[in-house]
């Protein structure tokens, strides 16, 4: 078991009497890459700002190891932040920006110079010391911001949607880069994003938030394969969400057909359940006895796969497949027991 570095207990924050973060608890282990994922307004940035010390919790505690840090001002916390808009100081060049935190600590010139060069190597900007920050591209500015945030050897690096201002290609490159940096320097990264793909790519652990509450936390595989509710299923990747009913464990009925599944009946009070099926888990082919039958209404090429919409009575399924099926074709949809995820009806 890894040692816990950051812990939140009953963390609550309101702005103007509106609750933004509602009594949440979480733990973050040393050297872990943890992502807070959620739509805008879910409270993820507020949580990060409370950890950094820019916002005070309304109630609840934040622990660094076993010490409550609520009352420690940001400048005394051994945590550093990479800002969404980088916030590089415009009146300083690359060297001065990165040296800034070390200058504050009155470190000697030689060791500052060495450390800056070393940090620039880490972020792949060796030799950029004398460049003006305004002359750098967005991606390069982001790297400088990361190097600057690492200059004080923080215990934890906080990243607030750091890649959102970059174009798609750059973003993909920086994702790989970030993961590499994290593994290289072996530090705890706490990352905030609304981009589910980014979260899945980078994280050791994802904490999914909605309306200031934790929906699910776990490894990317867990979150993707075993979403605990329809919000998570819908937010992480694409999902078909269908009303169904269960009269006994391991058997579910929806759209007029019975299927074997691997879940027990979630709620003994009612037979109603919600069925979640990922588009890529659906097999599309000939109509058969046990398949759900429908008609192809649209097909869009997505690069690796086709995204096909299939109308089956009153439900439109989204299917991802590498096979082509023309519009108007009669098809049958099939799924294995593993592909059917059962959730409690809301």
């Amino acid at each position: 078991m890894k040692k816990t570095i950051i812990e939140a207990r009953n963390l609550y924050k309101e702005f103007d009497k509106t609750a933004v973060v509602k009594h949440i608890n979480f733990t973050i282990a040393e050297n872990e890459f943890v992502t807070f994922l959620g739509p805008s307004g879910c409270g993820k940035t507020t949580i990060l700002r409370m950890i950094a010390g820019f916002e005070m919790p309304t109630s609840g505690e934040i622990f660094l190891y076993d010490k409550v840090i609520n009352d420690i001002p940001a400048y005394l916390r051994p945590l550093n932040t990479v800002f969404q808009n980088y916030a590089l100081f415009p009146h300083m060049n690359v060297f001065e920006n990165i040296a800034f935190p070390m200058r504050l600590k009155k470190q000697d010139k030689n060791s500052i110079g060495k450390k800056v060069a070393q940090l620039l190597d880490v972020v792949n900007l060796g030799g950029y010391e004398q460049r003006d920050v305004s002359s750098l591209s967005g991606g390069q500015q982001q790297r400088v911001a990361i190097a600057r945030a690492l200059a004080n050897d923080p215990k934890v690096l906080l990243l607030d949607e750091p890649l959102s201002a970059l174009d798609l290609k750059m973003r993909k490159e920086m994702q790989v880069e970030l993961k590499k940096i994290q593994q290289e320097i072996k530090k705890t990264f706490i990352y905030v994003t609304h981009d589910q793909e980014e979260a899945l790519t980078l994280s050791d652990k994802i904490i999914v938030l909605n309306h200031g509450q934790i929906q699910q936390s776990g490894t990317p595989t867990d979150i993707y394969n075993e979403p605990v509710n329809t919000f998570v299923a819908d937010f992480i990747g694409e999902s078909n969400i269908i009303d169904g009913s269960m009269t006994k464990d391991f058997e579910v009925e929806f759209l007029g057909k019975k299927f074997i599944c691997v879940d027990e009946k979630p709620d003994q009070q009612t037979n109603r359940v919600i069925v979640v099926i990922r588009p890529e888990d659906i097999e599309i082919g000939q109509r058969q006895e046990h398949t759900i039958n429908g008609v192809v209404t649209s097909i869009v090429f997505k690069g690796v796969h086709y995204e096909i919409m299939v109308q089956c009575n009153d439900y439109d399924f989204m299917v991802h497949t590498t096979d082509y099926h023309e519009i108007g074709k009669d098809v049958g949809l099939d799924f294995g027991p593993d592909d059917i995820h059962i959730m409690k009806a809301g």
Partner: peptide, 25 residues
Amino acid sequence: DANYAIAAGDLGANPRQTFMKITFP
């Protein structure tokens, strides 16, 4: 941009240092 002062604080500058090294320049 208020973020410059916040960033300076985050990097370890106390309010006086933030003013002298960031806001005033």
